[in-house]
Design a protein around this nucleic acid. Sequence first.
RNA 1: GUGCCCAUAGUUUAGUGGUAAAACUUCGGUUUGUGGUACCGACAUCGAGGGUUCAAUUCCCUCUGGGCACCCCA
Length: 432
Amino acid sequence: MSSNKSESKKQDIASPKGMRDIIGDEYYKFQGFFEKAQEVAVYYGFTPIETPILEFESTFTTAIGDGTDVIDKEMYALKTKGGDALAMRPEGTAGVMRAYIENGMTNQPQPLLFYYYGPMFRHDKPQRGRYRQFYQFGLEAMGSEKSIIDALLIKATITILEEAGAKDLVVQINSMGDKEDRISYVKELTAYYKKHANGLSPLDQERLKTNPLRVLDSKDPATIEINQGAPDIVSHLGTPAKKHFKEVLECLDQMGISYQINKNLVRGLSYYTRTVFEIEEPSAEDGTALTIAAGGRYDLLARQLGSKKDVPSMGVGIGVDRIVETPWFKDLAPRIMKKPKVYFIQVGLDAKLKSLNVIEILRKAHIPVMQALSKDSLSAQLAVAEKSGVPYTIIFGQKEAMENSVIVRNMDTRGQDCIPVSELHTYLKSLK
RNA sequence: GUGCCCAUAGUUUAGUGGUAAAACUUCGGUUUGUGGUACCGACAUCGAGGGUUCAAUUCCCUCUGGGCACCCCA
């Protein structure tokens, strides 16, 4: 900040970088998506959970892992007045797992299925479909290592996306294996890359040191070539992980879900074991497709966070901002959003004073109205009503205020009926 | 975080080294008892700060914000 002139300088009115206001119709898109996703989740047996936006920083660092960009570069960390080191959640899983452990949920029938929705924060450079405050709808299935759980979660994810308007979805899927599988695989992979180190770009050389798995999804053409001959993880899976992966794929076949095994698919969060998957935005121009949902299994996370028991689990995060922006998103209107069919107009001071009473009567009858109480002139109000496209207006003037009645005007035919307030409810219902 | 491009009213856009036009929107009025028209009027310290200049919205620099690619990811 270079406002070294004076402290009283008027501040720029601006939302922080990468954060925006969600207003009106856009808000309804988010809300509509959430309601639909929630509905689907409930049908599949998920129950709601909401965890704090802030957690202890250590919850995320131990869960997601040092050496990941999400932790090292992108986390909003802060010190409270009391001296606590907190951080704004960059993803949802760590918080839900923390809640599971803290609330002793291991003592309930397993698995526990949760869904959640809310803002996540990552100090990233903004770009299309990438915000510093973004919204995720997430599913977590905790306490079972069965392959059917993986399939259930993927299926639920796809159903949610399809309900939002997505077609021709393809699941990219891979298995990271169990811990030992991964260790031996990484060792072999590193050895392979060391042999081909000359062909690797400086960036990939760096990756090789910090996180060799990431070299697999490099975009560098030279690296892609080298990756052709790289050992693949699926053939390094131990028997249990191999069996698990096979079962997951069988389930997907059974459900008719199209998938691609992508041996280069590795995810950025280090807690994943066994199944990992990603779903890309369908029908995007080549190369520009964004990931709209991604997740995987995290059988080791619970212990890392301090649980005494293993809690094998599977989760997914769905990027709501990205979905709502796609051309195929069908406007899912939230239930609370009833478009008013009636515009309320008042004329004269007496009527204005009684207006709120009439509106309250309508509210109790569940009839939403628009109004412009702040305006006086009838023609001005009619003009606004016209512009907003409502089919009916209610006109409430001096005379009506005295008679306790109201004029209902059909905006198309311009016909009018005089209706006593007591009968207004039934009259409006009859119009439909 | 790196590179490239961009920034004028609420919105979409003109324009110029001498403090800015237009359309739409909004608000007010002609018109507090019947609308979609018309007319009149109002709304921009030209993203912020600094520099060059007699003079900068226009040229230069920095910052901020946005877009795209990379990094990374939802």
